[in-house]
Design a protein around this nucleic acid. Structure first.
Lengths: 214, 214
DNA sequence: ACTGGGAATTTTGTATTCAAAATACATAGT
DNA sequence: ACTATGTATTTTGAATACAAAATTCCCAGT
């Protein structure tokens, strides 16, 4: 077994993202470095390094002398982020190998239809969604693009746990994914991209209902 | 006069980007933290914070125990970055207020035609180009997008000083900018976007000639 | 001459300390 | 009672100190 040795700052970053996804940090609240460092069992140095990395992704904000705070959420910013992700995923799809897309299309369709269970925690829905989009983009060889997408999506993570209960949205999302997969099956890349955009815009509007007006 | 007080890490980051743009750091070379910190007259702590921020932008890479190094250049990565920037600027243009675009179009045209001086250092050409694109995107209200573009472009900065001498490219660039401006004057947003994409792709190909095969 | 092993040295990663802001608190004055 | 001002406390920002790798260099052995 290859023992893994990653810098503490990266482990901390991941741990913080995990906690953020679990909704442990309220948007807009300050980070107390000493307290958080103690809680994680590390010193402030690597913690601050992790905080700076997260600030670069838009997860945190910082101001002179006042330290870091979890970035507040806003409808405007959410719309901005969705527009960016939609454009980037479109680019990723556009620059994917068509042959590969055809290969994964059936699996995408399966995944989209496959889990019709109504009872699903919000976290699992999101995880499944991430997985689906991950597969969709698996044929994109633009590494910087994939990297960028990952980071921008990290910046959106804090919006995920704003939605408390899911019901109709799951079905819609699933239907939209099917639509995209079907387009890919038919080798209709432009159609797939349009459907993908619609999926993001639609998901955004469904989500917006849960975000308080700023 | 309001005295400015910015964190050291940000000043260091800017200084490093400046030096990088001036070509003081060769791609692929290691950063010696102690030496660089001494040179800048700061301690390693804020320097490392700046390095981590720059690593998040792709300017630097890091690996466990081996510290930071300036990211090597590659034709592949350059193509990836250009594709990303082209897509993001397209989105920015697309989501700009058409009225505002019409307003700035004459100025864009002026700027594009205005400086036909053959003798221009590489740095001034780049600065002028940045300025032009900055004006082009000045009507984009998507702050996160502008932010992201700035960061991705920062990651491209190290490619700029690979070009040693300019000659024909300047004229081409200028001509392409005119084309974009003219489209905007005619309220032809889709046409402007297409021209913008062509501008990026064209600039990329001109640049690629100067990047050694990996 | 070349390879392998093992100190010595350098360099990074993390913790701790120190200094300077910012915040909270208390007290005096109105 | 409220504001203002000065002081204590907390918290961040930066520097230093320490520990753990990684690298270098040297020498023995083949």
């Amino acid at each position: 077994m290859a023992i893994e040795r990653r810098p503490l700052r990266e482990q901390i970053r991941d741990e913080l993202m995990d906690r953020l996804t679990r909704g442990e940090f309220a948007a807009g609240t300050d980070v107390n470095e000493a307290v958080l460092a103690a809680e994680l069992g590390v010193s402030r140095t690597p913690l601050r390094e992790a905080l700076i990395a997260l600030a670069g992704e838009g997860v945190l904000e910082s101001s002179q002398g006042r330290g870091f705070r979890f970035a507040p959420v806003s409808r405007t910013e959410f719309r901005e982020l969705v527009a960016i992700v939609a454009a980037l995923e479109s680019l990723a799809l556009e620059s994917s190998d068509p042959a590969h897309l055809r290969t994964i299309a059936p699996r995408l369709l399966d995944l989209a239809q496959g889990f019709p269970d109504q009872v699903a925690t919000h976290a699992t829905v999101d995880r499944r969604d991430d997985e689906w989009h991950g597969l969709l983009l698996s044929g994109c060889s633009n590494e910087r693009l994939i990297d960028l997408l990952t980071r921008v999506k990290a910046g959106m993570r804090r919006y995920e746990n704003l939605v408390v209960a899911e019901d109709e949205p799951v079905a819609r999302e699933s239907e939209e994914h099917c639509e995209i997969a079907r387009r890919l099956l038919e080798d209709d890349l432009p159609g797939a991209i349009t459907a993908l955009r619609a999926n993001w815009i639609g998901g955004m509007e469904r989500m917006l209902a849960h975000i308080p007006a700023e």
